[in-house]
Simulated scan of single mutants.
Amino acid sequence: MTASLLSLLFIIVLCGHFVGLILGYKRRKTTLTLAYVNAIFVVLTFIFWVITSWSNNHYNIDIYEGLLICFEACILSSSLYSIKGFGYKTYVKIINSIGFGIHVLALMAMLYYIRLFQFDQLF
């Protein structure tokens, strides 16, 4: 996967996040829309992690990877809790908003990093 293809993928995912945010604001259901975007992003992240772990025969998890998995699981549980109908609770709104913000910031940081160092090959 080249740098330009990976940058395009990150831009598409970032645009999807912003479209979800705008649609949620227009429909006045921002919490529910952010929950759907977070849930989709976390599930895709878990799928990517499982595929790369199995293809590399990488069964040990270091502390940073474990913390990231626990964080994403917390975001997924909060998103599913919000989708189930409990999005009016304040702590669910806060966790969904923080998770959404961290996902957007991480995507922008990865995009900047890829464009800065011009990768030839990712894997």
Rank of each mutant, 00 (worst) to 15 (best):
residue 91 Y to C: 06
residue 122 L to S: 11
residue 58 H to S: 13
residue 71 F to Q: 02
residue 101 G to F: 03
residue 21 L to C: 08
residue 92 V to D: 01
residue 113 Y to N: 13
residue 29 K to I: 00
residue 105 L to N: 00
residue 110 M to C: 12
residue 82 S to G: 10
residue 84 K to V: 14
residue 68 L to Y: 00
residue 34 L to R: 06
residue 67 L to Y: 03
residue 53 S to A: 14
residue 99 G to F: 06
residue 68 L to M: 11
residue 38 N to T: 10
residue 30 T to K: 05
residue 68 L to S: 09
residue 93 K to R: 14
residue 110 M to F: 11
residue 97 S to Q: 00
residue 67 L to N: 02
residue 111 L to G: 09
residue 24 G to S: 04
residue 1 M to Q: 13
residue 109 A to R: 10
residue 73 A to C: 09
residue 13 V to E: 04
residue 101 G to E: 00
residue 9 L to T: 13
residue 81 Y to N: 05
residue 102 I to W: 04
residue 6 L to G: 02
residue 68 L to Q: 07
residue 81 Y to C: 09
residue 12 I to S: 07
residue 109 A to I: 15
residue 57 N to P: 05
residue 71 F to C: 08
residue 43 V to G: 00
residue 79 S to W: 01
residue 28 R to N: 03
residue 43 V to E: 03
residue 62 D to S: 07
residue 59 Y to P: 01
residue 116 L to N: 15
residue 86 F to I: 14
residue 22 I to C: 05
residue 66 G to R: 07
residue 25 Y to N: 04
residue 62 D to P: 03
residue 110 M to Y: 11
residue 26 K to I: 14
residue 68 L to N: 10
residue 85 G to I: 06
residue 102 I to D: 08
residue 26 K to T: 08
residue 80 L to F: 09
residue 38 N to I: 09
residue 58 H to T: 13
residue 40 I to D: 00
residue 62 D to F: 01
residue 118 Q to H: 12
residue 121 Q to C: 05
residue 61 I to Y: 00
residue 66 G to D: 00
residue 116 L to Q: 15
residue 89 K to C: 01
residue 5 L to D: 09
residue 67 L to F: 06
residue 52 T to G: 10
residue 5 L to Y: 00
residue 50 V to R: 07
residue 74 C to M: 11
residue 96 N to M: 00
residue 38 N to A: 08
residue 34 L to D: 06
residue 51 I to L: 11
residue 84 K to W: 12
residue 120 D to E: 15
residue 118 Q to T: 15
residue 24 G to R: 03
residue 114 I to C: 03
residue 110 M to E: 09
residue 83 I to M: 06
residue 96 N to S: 01
residue 89 K to F: 08
residue 6 L to E: 11
residue 75 I to Q: 02
residue 1 M to D: 14
residue 54 W to N: 11
residue 62 D to E: 07
residue 93 K to V: 12
residue 116 L to Y: 13
residue 22 I to H: 02
residue 54 W to Y: 12
residue 64 Y to K: 07
residue 121 Q to D: 04
residue 23 L to C: 05
residue 77 S to L: 15
residue 28 R to V: 08
residue 41 F to N: 00
residue 12 I to H: 01
residue 1 M to S: 14
residue 38 N to P: 01
